[in-house]
Each structure stands twice: as structure tokens, then as C-alpha cells.
């Protein structure tokens, strides 16, 4: 475990837990894309199938449980909570995410490390995570209002991806045979998706103006 990876995991944890706590506290999910939250719950469900059969470390197991619990809790709040669900921006969150899920599943069947159920599901979760943020970015473009709830969420997610790339560079140079093309390519694609958001986020932050994404 290197510092980049620990910092990446912590940043990822903060992004999900802060979102959950904010939704729980202000009883609102305005600006949050339910589609992205559902995709993330699916990412964790598909990736952590080995939760009870492949013990890596206590840290690994605890973090998996926290990610599963928090992502499914957010989906529950947005779909079932009597107050929060009314604040969900249904008519703008219209990204057809089955157009994302199916291609990722097909790609996982074609490109994986081993053609076993768990490995195909693992590859599926890697590809799905790379594009899971798209409905959220589309929603932000549509509603053009980026209150701090979603702005921080996307910012922390992007930071977690950048830290993971630094982690892979570190591991590549320090561990022999550490090569994971599937994670690397999907991870780079995912980070690039955040790049333009980062650009506008930092500009708005520097000019101290409300973040406006181009139409």
C-alpha cells in the first residue's frame, strides 16, 4: 500500500460519505444524478463479489463494505426516502444509462484477464466505473447550477482518479510484473472525462464566480 493509493482510497471514501451525509442532513439530493449513483452501486456490487471468498486485508474488506453500504444508501435515499425523493430532478436526469451498461458488459466478455464469472464481472465493473460519472456531468450541464453538493462530489472523485494513476505509476516502478492494462486504460479514460470539469471548476474557483459549464 503506497501513499498515493491510500490517499486515493481516502478521497474516494470522502466523496461518497460526504455526499451521503449531506443528503441525509439537508434531506435533499438536488443536482445529484440518480443514474450515476445507481451505476456506482452496480460497480461496487460487480467488483466486490469476492468480498467473502478472497481476503486481501482487513482494510480492504472494511473499505469494500463501506463503499457498498454508502453507495446503496444514497440510491435508497434518492428512490425511497419520502422527503429526499421529492427533490430528485427526474426530468433532467434522463441519461439512458442502459446504453452504458450493455456495452461495458459486452466489452467485459471480450476483454478480461480470465474468462471466469468473477473476472468478467470485475472487468465489467472497471469499464462501468470509467463512464459512471457521465449522467452526473450531463445533469450538471443541463441544470447549469453547480451547488457545492455536486461540485465537491465530482471534484473529490476526480482527485481520487488522479491519485490512482500516480499509484499505478509508483507500483509500476517498484513492483516487478505489475501490469494491469484493463485498469490502466479504463482509469485514464475515466480521468480524462473529469478533466474538462476540473478545468471549469478551477477557473470558477479562481475567478470566484459561480461555476458555469458551457452549454
Amino acid at each position: 500500500m503506497n501513499l498515493f493509493r491510500l490517499a486515493g482510497d481516502m478521497t474516494h471514501l470522502v466523496s461518497v460519505v460526504v455526499l451521503l451525509l449531506k443528503i441525509h442532513t439537508i434531506k435533499s439530493c438536488a443536482g445529484v444524478s440518480l443514474k450515476t449513483q445507481e451505476l456506482y452501486a452496480l460497480v461496487f456490487a460487480a467488483r466486490y463479489l469476492d468480498l467473502f471468498v478472497h481476503f486481501v486485508s482487513l482494510y480492504n474488506t472494511v473499505m469494500k463494505l463501506v463503499f457498498l453500504a454508502s453507495s446503496f444508501s444514497i440510491v435508497w435515499y434518492m428512490r425511497k426516502h419520502k422527503i429526499v425523493r421529492r427533490t430528485y430532478d427526474r426530468e433532467h436526469d434522463t441519461f439512458r444509462h442502459h446504453f452504458i451498461v450493455l456495452p461495458c458488459l459486452v466489452l467485459a466478455l471480450l476483454i478480461n484477464e480470465r474468462f471466469t464469472f468473477r473476472e468478467v464481472m470485475w472487468a465489467f465493473s472497471i469499464y462501468l466505473e470509467a463512464v459512471a460519472i457521465l449522467p452526473q456531468l450531463v445533469l450538471l450541464q443541463r441544470t447549469r447550477n453547480i451547488d457545492n453538493l455536486t461540485g465537491q462530489y465530482v471534484f473529490f472523485l476526480g482527485a481520487y482518479r488522479v491519485l490512482y494513476i500516480l499509484n499505478w505509476i509508483y507500483r509500476y516502478f517498484t513492483e516487478p510484473h505489475f501490469v494491469h492494462w484493463i485498469s490502466w486504460i479504463a482509469g485514464i479514460v475515466q480521468t480524462v472525462l473529469y478533466a474538462d470539469f476540473f478545468y471549469y471548476y478551477i477557473i470558477s474557483w479562481k475567478n470566484n464566480v459561480k461555476l458555469e459549464l458551457p452549454a
Binding site: 493509493r5 482510497d9 474516494h12 467488483r47 469476492d50 478472497h54 486481501v56 480492504n60 473499505m63 469494500k64 463503499f67 470485475w122 490512482y164 499509484n167 510484473h177 485498469s183
Partner: peptide, 10 residues
């Protein structure tokens, strides 16, 4: 070895 074969990252 199992760690190397499996995925040790979250």
C-alpha cells in the same frame, strides 16, 4: 501469491 493473482486494489 493469491494477492498477486487476485485484485488487491479497491
Amino acid at each position: 501469491s493469491s494477492e498477486l493473482s487476485g485484485h488487491d486494489e479497491l
